[in-house]
Computed example of a mutant assay.
Amino acid sequence: MGVDSWEMYCQTPNWQRERMMAVNHFHDPGGQFEIAEVLLSEAIDDGDPGGMKLLSLLLNSGAKHPLELDMGLGKYHRPNRPGSIVFVSDQLPSEIQGVGPFHSIAWYIRPDVLQQRASRILGREAPAMDVLHSKSFRDDAIEVLLKRLLHQFESQPAAGARMTADDLVDDLIRRLLALTENQAPAPLGPRDRLRPASIQRTLEYLHANFSQDVSRDDLAQAAGVDPCHFTRLFRQTMGQTPSRYLSQVRIEHAKHLLRYGSSELTLNEISARCGFYNQSHMGREFRRQVGTTPNLYRVYS
């Protein structure tokens, strides 16, 4: 039996409900990660990890009691409130038990891929993220990014029309790193962060206009907040400043053009297409983020 919506699942008689039904399950063509929208009537896991790290976002729950988890660091409970997140280790034995129904988004990534991408983003060896395995938490940025990533695979938009899956995965990893460095994924107060809808509008604006001159006021208008408070709210929500985030988006697009674009494209043309002032500006940012020059990256990538 298959269902394609939470509403249909809730209307299905109990005796017909299966323990697990994957509504949508997508594989990254490169084999680095998977994402799925799943419905669980019961959650049971008592065994060794499956070799993939799991980030799970609860969308809805009809359970009477919280889900009980133990990732090898002590038992804790995931509340049944939408937006609750758990990050499951690939190395620690896991125990999960609870009677649903649970409706969630599950993102799986190979640990070596996570480490490599995190280290590339930081420009140094990335820290372990074990602190995030010991409790359930909420984070508006992760919630928005997981929903956008699932939608990216569901809708399969034209190339360049929206944020790419790789962009979204890098954003997820940046946010996990920020939470790890803060040592506490405890939520900020509602006045200290951007709301999910504001985050989504801001990220969409950044990815649609990265080649242009993007100002703080432009982003604040997209987010629907006072420009005087926007930079602080963005940093507390995303773990970095808007200008740093924009620079990372531009460098990712520069890397794409260097690797897959026409060899006749000059560095000046690439820098202009990616929103940099000139070739020198792009070169400085490229070396800072990637650790090499654009020319060498083009030759050896």
Rank of each mutant, 00 (worst) to 15 (best):
V299M: 12
P185E: 03
V249L: 09
R19V: 08
E68W: 13
P157R: 11
G72Q: 02
S56C: 15
A272E: 12
M238K: 02
P79T: 13
E125G: 04
H229Y: 12
Q212F: 10
F102E: 02
M129H: 00
H253E: 06
R17G: 02
A208I: 01
V23I: 14
E269R: 15
Q200I: 07
Q152I: 04
V169Y: 07
S280H: 13
A161D: 09
Q236V: 00
A197D: 13
P185R: 04
N60G: 11
P185T: 01
S104K: 13
A22M: 11
S247L: 09
N24M: 07
E181H: 13
F26A: 00
A272G: 11
Q200K: 14
Q115G: 10
E154V: 06
L188Y: 11
S5P: 14
D48C: 04
R17I: 00
T293W: 12
S262R: 06
R162E: 14
L39A: 06
P227D: 09
P187R: 13
D213L: 13
H103G: 06
D130C: 13
P29S: 10
R284G: 03
Q156I: 10
F234R: 00
Y108E: 06
V3Y: 10
W15P: 04
L265K: 13
G47Q: 04
P196A: 00
S104Y: 15
P157G: 08
Q97C: 11
L172C: 12
G72L: 03
N60A: 15
H253V: 02
D171N: 10
R235I: 00
E42K: 15
Y76V: 11
